[in-house]
Design a protein around this nucleic acid. Structure first.
Length: 142
DNA sequence: GCCAACGTTGGC
DNA sequence: GCCAACGTTGGC
């Protein structure tokens, strides 16, 4: 309906499935999400929506951008039929990964869902937050 | 329908 | 590896 894209952030432990794994596959399926809130966020995704790929547990940083290539498909590993998955394709790696630490220090990102609710693995990102994080990734911030 | 117990996630 | 936060489960 709306012509504007929506923005999201999804977490994965790089040990389990990291950015390099997505690159290797070229298209990845984002399954195994068994949390009502995260699942609802995935259901709200539209084709072409942009997603930050965040490495949790290890790295603790946004490493790249991907986009939705298939929406709300049944999770192939879920026997209950309750949960859905989406497919994603890599768009590009960020010039500089944006760390959780840096995001926490940025007052413009104080409302970021992953800061307020640590354990939410699929979270919406506002347009302003998206633009702010992109600008952080463009400036060298070691 | 409530709430204690338990399991999982993820930052530190 | 630890523990806090939070979701889910199950007994009542």
């Amino acid at each position: 309906m709306s012509d504007g894209k929506n923005y999201w952030l999804m977490k994965s432990e790089p040990d389990e499935y990291g950015w390099d794994d997505l690159i290797a596959e070229d298209e990845g399926i984002w399954d195994g999400v068994k949390n009502a809130q995260a699942s609802n966020n995935m259901k709200a995704m539209a084709l072409g929506d942009q997603i930050f790929f965040y490495h949790s547990r290890q790295g603790l940083e946004i490493v790249g951008i991907m986009e939705v290539s298939a929406t709300a498909i049944p999770d192939p590993f879920d026997e209950t039929g309750r949960w859905i998955a989406v497919k994603v394709k890599p768009v590009r790696k960020l010039d500089n990964a944006v760390t959780l630490k840096a995001m926490k220090q940025n007052p413009k990102l104080s409302d970021l869902a992953i800061i307020k609710q640590t354990r939410l693995s699929v979270a919406p990102v506002t347009h302003d937050q998206w633009a702010e994080i992109l600008s952080m990734s463009a400036s060298s911030q070691a």
